[in-house]
């Protein structure tokens, strides 16, 4: 099968007129002109070079494109960039200034094996932070309910839940624990809700 890269055609100029939008992305104001049909995730990745946010399924199922829009986790593959006009967008790039100073949640994912291939991680982090902003001390069941819209095909979720528990503890001010210490004494054994 031949794959052809097709640039936006000039034949439909009337409907593809660009629209000026203003975003605040990771604290910085950005002015852009976008076609109405362009998705927020594509504008973030292609126009702003913020490729930490991934496109996984592109059908609103996998959640790896999750960013915060005005403080709430959303799937950026299911938001038009024009809908985000005037809004604050936070992406995974905003969590840490560099790899030496990871966000406590990112550090917990590293220590507690919250990733293998890492493709789902940006979305997992952003969804988990949405949860922790409202509930700093969730049960395992609440974490599983919160990441229902984020798919991981490597870990089986157990270590992701553990990573979020450990990250939450550090964000609450508790000292970080190693994987061995955490394994000896899990923080929560509450059962998961049905869905």
């Amino acid at each position: 099968m031949e794959l052809i890269h097709r640039p936006a055609s000039a034949g439909t100029a009337a409907t593809e007129a660009r629209i000026a939008i203003d975003l605040v992305v990771n604290g910085e104001r950005v002015a852009l002109e976008v076609e109405p049909r362009r998705l927020l995730v594509d504008v973030l990745r292609e126009d702003l070079d913020l490729t930490g946010t991934k496109v996984g399924c592109d059908t609103s199922s996998c959640g790896t494109c999750t960013v915060h829009l005005d403080g709430r986790a959303v799937k950026s593959c299911t938001v038009l960039a024009v809908q985000a006009d005037g809004s604050a967008v936070r992406t995974v790039e905003d969590l840490a200034p560099d790899s030496e100073h990871l966000h406590p949640l990112q550090a917990a994912f590293v220590e507690h094996h919250g990733l293998q291939c890492g493709f789902c991680t940006p979305g997992m982090l952003m969804t988990a932070l949405d949860l922790l902003a409202r509930d700093p001390d969730p049960s395992d069941g609440e974490i599983r309910h919160a990441i229902h819209g984020n798919l991981c095909r490597c870990t089986g979720y157990q270590s992701i839940v553990a990573s979020i528990q450990e990250g939450a503890a550090v964000m609450r001010g508790e000292p970080p624990r190693t994987w061995t210490e955490a394994h000896a004494a899990p923080r929560s054994t509450a059962p998961a809700p049905d869905r």
């Binding site: 709430r72 959303v74 799937k75 299911t78 309910h145 990441i147 819209g149």
Partner: peptide, 12 residues
């Protein structure tokens, strides 16, 4: 309400 979509879908 808790079973509609997922967190991200319910936010929007």
């Amino acid at each position: 309400l808790p079973v509609i979509g997922d967190v991200q879908v319910r936010n929007r």
